[in-house]
């Protein structure tokens, strides 16, 4: 498999970050960074990571099943994650998630037909004091109201997301 030069550089660094004969340590970071680039953990990626980390594909497979951020099917270009854990729940996150689900017409871990947006109800993401919070890919958005949520979704659709302060 070929990856972007930046990712290859990251991989190269990873493979020297761990003690000798501990290449296996690089599995999780490699999978996550590669997933960010290619969209999901594909069977080829499993083989590739297994080869580079000198483990069996099964050993990579076991890891993938364990971590909730690794997924075998592509999610949306923008993966919208709504935390509904207790701190966010206290400030209406469950209602926010329902709102999201209803307006986006998406169930948990579903992707819009155009592949633009996917939705996920997630566990605490470390934004409790600024709840309710969501993450779009890796960007945090704090104090999200349904109205702000709609504006954010609009910006994903019209391409303005990330270009102006949200």
């Amino acid at each position: 498999m070929t990856f972007s030069p930046a990712l290859e550089e990251r991989f190269a660094k990873l493979l020297t970050s761990y003690p000798p004969r501990r290449l296996r340590s690089a599995i999780v970071p490699m999978l996550l960074y590669a997933q960010d680039e290619i969209g999901c953990v594909s069977p080829e990626l499993i083989e590739e990571v297994a080869r580079r980390c000198e483990v069996t594909p099964l050993q990579v497979d076991e890891v993938i099943g364990y971590y909730s951020m690794l997924h075998r099917k592509p999610l949306g270009k923008y993966h919208v994650q709504v935390c509904t854990n207790i701190a966010c729940q206290a400030l209406g996150a469950e209602e926010l998630y329902d709102h999201a689900s209803r307006t986006l017409r998406l169930g948990n871990r579903e992707v819009t037909e155009d592949g633009l947006i996917s939705l996920e109800e997630v566990e605490c993401m470390g934004a409790c004091s600024w709840a309710p919070a969501i993450q779009i890919n890796y960007d945090f958005h704090h104090f999200v109201t349904p109205e702000r949520f709609d504006r954010l979704m609009e910006s994903l659709r019209d391409g303005s997301y990330g270009k102006k302060a949200s």
């Binding site: 099964l58 076991e62 364990y66």
Partner: peptide
């Protein structure tokens, strides 16, 4: 052989 592993969580 190591043909069996654990999947999911």
């Amino acid at each position: 052989v190591g043909a069996l592993g654990i999947g999911n969580r």
